[in-house]
Computed example of a mutant assay.
Amino acid sequence: MTTNGVAGLTTGGAKRGTDADAERNEPGKEAETVRGTAGQPGAVGRDVVTGTVVFDALGGPEVLSVRQLPLRTPAAGEVLVRVEALGVNRAEALFRSGGYYYLPTLPGSRLGYEAAGVVEAVGEEVTRFRAGDAVLTGPGIEMSAQGVYAERVVLPEDSVVRRPAGVDAVAGAASWLAYSTAYGGLLETGGLRPGDVVLITAASSGVGIAALQTAARIGAVPVAVTRTVRKREALFTAGAAHIVVTGEEDTVASVKALTGGLGADLLFDAVGGAGLAGLATALRVDGTVVVYGWLDGTSSVMPMNWPLTVRGYANQALSGSAPGRRRIDAWLASGLRDGTLRPVIAEEFEGLASMPDAHRRLEENRHTGKLVVRLS
């Protein structure tokens, strides 16, 4: 285990283009085909189409393709968003391959729920947005029907949140899901407090880095768990106070040594599976486990080192309510504004046609931070 004296934050990373321009479908019609003024309902021409990523069968990244789909007029309570950047998330890869908690509707399923963009038009009864507003997507999106991997997308008003001032599209596309999950899982569900030691698995993921920064922001002690020493320095830079490399040391023994034999207060786990029971023994008596993912792919084994609280966190339970979205938005905006929350961009890809490459990179598990696809 290694310890960080001062945990800095970082953005930046590699930028990846694609030489597949010749294979791209023609982009959707330009903004002038969308009629709408600030605060007024918008209409879309009958023949307008928009480039959209779809898939017809479960499988690897190769099942993804770009098609031109009709772009309908926003109905009452809906918002039309021109997408500028897309966050690529583990849940989307699971959905594409059939491993998510609900299955896609095939053929012709859409994909994706995290985008940054600009409102182009609104339907009747929309009160919180108007044309020209910079926004993020995320809450309550059913990916088969509403997936946001597209040049333009029509969504319910409640699935759109205002992008914090001063945040560009790439940072925005890397922010909402990661920081809402970290906030909801650690603070609202896990009850993390200043001085608490929190063990964070899958620490190099977008949510993992958001959890490191969220814990540090409130004065807790974030301990990153990673499988390889190669990611150590990047995790220190991202905000970890201590790092446990599972390939080199005994995780439970290292955490016990760090805490004077007491154990960590909270385990924030994205992996689950048979290893959960053993990892939970790194907690103190009456500690808390918050499981928010199942990357292991097998059934989790219930920890038996009681007394212990085990909670499963579903982001929709918090973001699906107006009060929950208000708290998430306040946390995210204030953290981005004061610099304590800064998304780490591992790599940028260009255009919808690069989405299979982005998914391949995601599944290599070699990156630290968030993968983002820019639409220009």
Rank of each mutant, 00 (worst) to 15 (best):
K15L: 11
A202W: 08
D133R: 01
P307W: 15
V34K: 04
R35N: 06
G117M: 04
G278W: 03
L352H: 01
Y179H: 02
T18S: 15
R24W: 05
E30G: 14
G195T: 07
G195R: 07
A116L: 00
V207E: 08
T251K: 12
V88M: 09
G312E: 12
P61N: 06
V54E: 10
V290C: 13
G17H: 09
T33V: 10
V54L: 14
L371I: 12
V34Q: 02
A224P: 13
G263K: 05
L186T: 10
K15W: 01
T288V: 14
L371D: 07
V6S: 14
G140C: 06
V49G: 02
A76G: 11
Y113T: 00
I218T: 13
R227T: 15
T259V: 11
V223M: 14
A38D: 02
Q316V: 14
P139H: 02
G190K: 00
G339K: 03
D357N: 02
N365Y: 11
R110N: 07
L86Y: 05
I209P: 05
R327Y: 10
V223T: 11
G13E: 10
P303C: 14
Y113C: 01
V81F: 00
R67Y: 04
F95T: 00
V197I: 09
G263S: 09
R35L: 10
L64G: 03
R162V: 05
I243Y: 10
A178K: 00
I243D: 14
M355Q: 01
T259W: 12
V79K: 03
G297L: 11
G42I: 03
E151M: 02
Y100H: 08
V344E: 05
W176A: 06
G12M: 02
A115V: 04
E124G: 08
D19N: 09
L235Y: 13
S299Y: 04
V54S: 05
G339F: 07
R162T: 09
I345G: 04
G190T: 05
K370Y: 02
V244F: 13
S175A: 14
V63W: 01
V310R: 07
G87A: 09
S254G: 15
R311S: 15
A202K: 07
G263T: 06
A14T: 12
T11W: 00
R366Q: 09
G166L: 05
E125K: 12
